[in-house]
Simulated assay, not measured.
Amino acid sequence: MISITQFQKVGVGFMGFGLFFLLFGVLLYFDSVLLAFGNILFLVGLTVIIGLQRTFNFFFQRSKLRGSAFFLGGVGLVLLRWPIVGMVIETYGFVQLFKTFFPVAFGFLGSLVNIPFLSTLFNKLAGSSSSMV
């Protein structure tokens, strides 16, 4: 089992609150203050969980520069009070950053869920990693 330090638990809390504020900001018709606060908390939580060096290495890998530019540019636009445009650009960057992780997550969900239709759907999504390009 993976041991989590107290510092990483604080990071999980930051990420949880960040996701809550992002969801709440979207539900309140893209409230720019809530979205900006959610983005900041999410990025701080990610940095606290995996560390500053790993965060920097993740965002600035040569293969992920385009996704990082769109994601961080979207965060910047949200901070500059362009919430709808910023969230659209940020979502595109998020998909570009994590496109290699989606098949793994769908495969895990397919093995976790024992509902016939959903497990077939998740297993099909997990097997087709080329469709995420």
Rank of each mutant, 00 (worst) to 15 (best):
L34Y: 09
T5V: 12
R54D: 15
G76S: 00
L28T: 14
P116G: 00
G127Y: 02
P116F: 00
Q8C: 14
G67A: 13
G110C: 05
L112R: 12
F30A: 10
L19A: 08
F30K: 02
G51L: 13
T91I: 03
G93A: 05
E90R: 06
S32R: 07
L118C: 11
I84P: 01
F71Y: 12
L79C: 09
S129W: 02
F42N: 07
L27N: 08
Q53L: 14
I2D: 14
F122K: 01
T91D: 03
G73I: 14
F17S: 06
F30G: 03
F122E: 01
F106Q: 08
A126W: 04
V33I: 12
S63K: 12
R81G: 00
K124E: 06
G86E: 01
V26F: 06
Q8G: 10
I115A: 06
F37T: 11
N39S: 11
F14E: 07
N57H: 13
L19W: 10
Q61E: 13
S63H: 07
Q53K: 15
F101M: 07
N123K: 10
G11W: 09
I50E: 10
A69N: 07
V12Y: 11
G45E: 02
L65D: 02
L112P: 02
I115E: 01
K64P: 03
V78L: 05
G107D: 05
D31P: 02
S32E: 09
Y29K: 15
I89D: 01
I89G: 06
F58A: 10
F101S: 09
G110Y: 03
L22C: 00
I89C: 03
V104T: 09
V33S: 01
T91Q: 04
F94Q: 08
P83G: 09
S32T: 07
F122Y: 09
F17L: 14
P116V: 07
V88N: 01
F14Q: 04
G18A: 03
G67L: 12
K9G: 09
F60G: 07
